[in-house]
Design a protein around this nucleic acid. Sequence first.
DNA 1: CGGGACTTTGAGCAAATTCAACCATTGTGG
DNA 2: CCACAATGGTTGAATTTGCTCAAAGTCCCG
Lengths: 246, 246
Amino acid sequence: MGPRDAGGARRRSDAAAGGTPCAACDIRGLSFCAVLSPAELEQLRAITSDMRVEAHRTIVSETDPADHLFNVTGGAVKLYKLLMDGRRQITGFLFPGDFLGVALNDRYVYSAEAITPVSLCRYERTQLEGLLDAFPALEKRLLGITANDLVAAQDQMVLLGRKTAQERVASFLLNLSRRAEDRGHGPDPLHLPMTRADIADYLGLTVETVSRTFSRLRKSGVIVLDGNEWVRLADRAALEELSEGE
Amino acid sequence: MGPRDAGGARRRSDAAAGGTPCAACDIRGLSFCAVLSPAELEQLRAITSDMRVEAHRTIVSETDPADHLFNVTGGAVKLYKLLMDGRRQITGFLFPGDFLGVALNDRYVYSAEAITPVSLCRYERTQLEGLLDAFPALEKRLLGITANDLVAAQDQMVLLGRKTAQERVASFLLNLSRRAEDRGHGPDPLHLPMTRADIADYLGLTVETVSRTFSRLRKSGVIVLDGNEWVRLADRAALEELSEGE
DNA sequence: CGGGACTTTGAGCAAATTCAACCATTGTGG
DNA sequence: CCACAATGGTTGAATTTGCTCAAAGTCCCG
């Protein structure tokens, strides 16, 4: 399956009237394109397509040719890998400003699925690579982003290899909360767009264990649940404690 | 602790007589410097120090200022992170040709320790960064290496989050074997320079479980142990099967 | 208001850990 | 040269954490 299956994409330049220009993009500061000057941004925009994907649709599939790279501008995305017998490991969640498209040998190394309706900037890989050569700052930025992702992946290895269920959930909530803050959302009610099953597959646990752990944290007053999608981190200090500081 | 503690380093150019020139470096093809022309290599060499580290010495420590970056030219290195209570997660093993020095906010994000005696090329971070600006190919290469490390980290997340003990050990052996082959070593007797405890901390298991799993694989004829440091992958197909192909 | 997807809770189970003892290899000092 | 300490590895028994299987309970959206 290619990105084509996930929804229409239209050339940015063709959509001048309706599209959101980069100047109005409120997450540009977080994105890889933050380092570009207005003139350079113009050139990037020329090779950009807007794309919208409904919830639960696949954006890219593992082992597909990596023809496109993406920048998430709205919504939430999950990245995952499958074992042959169906076991799933979610390797990350993406939010606005995050870059999508790590590839090896020109193939995607994970699948990406929209959790909520998602909007993306889409680039042809070859075209974007051309721009990287022209704008060293952009390449440098991409190196920084990749190094950051690597650091996050190593933290997740610690979590998966050495933390208890409770520590994993506490770390997860704090992590999401920090990322929400980066995006200017107050940390108070934290949004969990993903299901408990997604959280389980991200933390290397089962749904039941995640649910039980949430219940335990709720009963001990550390968090307050408001429906399934919203949490208040009532006692952040206790959470930090429980997460066994990485 | 800084790299200073781990052993002496001397300027390459000062050691022209005794040092190994890049031309004679048999792992240059695997290294980040593989993309440089002879003239460029000369410039890199000018900012390179040779360094030797005894086994069990720390090369860099997590949270230390990341003043130096390294290229492993001989020996084996382990990278690890610690939780406050001492639990340890090894995030990777490095062999000749591997790059060392991922940093965030100018601090190392993990500790690195020599497993065997290790030799390295050492660069001042600021100087190497200057060279990256001068040689775009080098920066591109570093991006490729970092992306590769990220992919490997994601595979390790699958292993840690979703694989059984036996699958982890099988994947580990196959992985090491592939890396040995990349370095021109026949896969037949595979060298394990790290202890069982290191393997355990890499695979998110205990020493006892690693030992039991090795024993089980040995008894079923899949591997043949020759002392603690050497394994023959007698039935590679069975190992592939057991590793539940990532 | 109903139905399907998601979540929670419970009871029993199993994989891996913990705790403990023993074995093997190596290097050291008497 | 050998005794023996130290490090690392293996094996066993008991325990535990998290998983599996099963059954309710909620939420949300049409």
